[in-house]
Nucleic acid binder design. Structure first.
Lengths: 206, 206
DNA sequence: TTCTCTTGCTTAACACTGTTAAGTGAGTGA
DNA sequence: TCACTCACTTAACAGTGTTAAGCAAGAGAA
């Protein structure tokens, strides 16, 4: 006995090997440029083997995506201990930028392409991260820190998100454009976060 | 004689028909989903015919892109008559958002994908629009309207651009994500522009 | 042991993509 | 009349994601 367990263990083992190979190749050469055949070759299987573990390429991408969203959420929740919601908001913004700098190709898949809807087995993948952002904004609103016209936490969260997503995605999409002399991403992002927070606050000096 | 002229005229005519078909199909079904064969079929030619007018698909995309950048530049320069540089900046931001709303698929190609470098025959395609933004910001700096830490016009322009690009591209990439309840784009963009301008100004009430 | 059945995987193919080498044939210019 | 130009076509290539059919090793039952 126990052979069933071993079989199952072996199965998830090769499944994980596929996932690992795909993750690495997506991240380095990009998602479009990595073919199923190349992934298969790397783990020394036939392309068809992958289809016994994942419905199709999109399912593979989606699974990696979920893991990435969880990783981002984890980065955010590290800010939980920061009491001041405004400071927490600032730090979330910078953590977001740092995540994008660290995993640019993951970021591209997560936020710069429409992920195929498919049937999402589990709930909201970006819930953790996005929900944490909304909660932080809610705290700020509850403390009366923001201007009165910002009473909708989701709207405010989306405005803040837009700012950091904008600078990051512009760099990722256009960094090799010879026409624009992009200023360094991290310092400029800090300035952008300051600008937005100041524009949001009821009492701009704190 | 004049037959040479007629031949040339006919050539650019079919060339334009290719361009028109491609533009329309890129805009409706998306760039990836439109095949060379489909474009050819629409204008009742063989796929190969396209290659006598354009080096490859990227060249076709690039040419349409240039036209789009010029169109955006034209929208911007309509704001030229606005004397107050801060008000002009605000209006440029909203014109940018309106352009993206009007031509979402063009926007995707222009700003959300790395356009193949190729050999850009003419100069900077985004120069018109981007240059106009930078100039506006320069005017604002010259008038001492912005906080002292914003003395670099390009940096400031990129911060402003990031904001509007962020909200627009987030909507374009994620609008059909069931996890996020996006607030309406135009009104939220107005708020975002206000937030950013206020955060930028030395004297926030004007 | 022997027989059957499951199951991870492979072989071989399909339909599709962008792209190109080798024509073809109508119309120009001599 | 004849060669030539050149916009366009035919037929193919190499690559993609994907799938139907089959194989062979191991498990479970006789």
């Amino acid at each position: 006995m126990g052979t069933k367990e071993r079989r199952e263990r072996e199965r998830v083992e090769t499944r994980d090997r596929i996932l690992d190979a795909a993750r690495e190749m997506f991240a380095t050469r990009g998602i479009e440029a990595t073919t199923m055949r190349a992934i298969a070759e790397r783990i020394e299987y036939t392309p068809t083997a992958i289809y016994h573990h994942f419905k199709d390429k999109d399912a593979l991408i989606l699974e990696l995506c979920h893991a990435d969203f969880r990783a981002l959420g984890r980065q955010f929740t590290r800010m939980e201990r920061i009491d001041d919601p405004v400071e927490r908001l600032r730090r979330i913004g910078l953590a977001y930028v740092d995540f994008a700098i660290a995993f640019p190709n993951h970021y591209r898949i997560m936020f710069m392409t429409s992920i195929p809807p498919h049937e999402h087995e589990d709930k909201n993948p970006e819930e953790d991260a996005y929900g944490f952002l909304v909660k932080t904004v809610e705290d700020g609103i509850a403390q009366g820190r923001f201007r009165p016209e910002f009473s909708d936490p989701e709207e405010l969260a989306q405005i803040m998100w837009s700012g950091v997503h904008g600078i990051v995605s512009l760099h990722l999409a256009k960094c090799d454009s010879p026409w624009i002399d992009f200023r360094p991403l991290r310092p400029t992002s800090e300035k952008l976060v300051d600008v937005m927070v100041r524009g949001l606050l009821r009492d701009p000096q704190g």
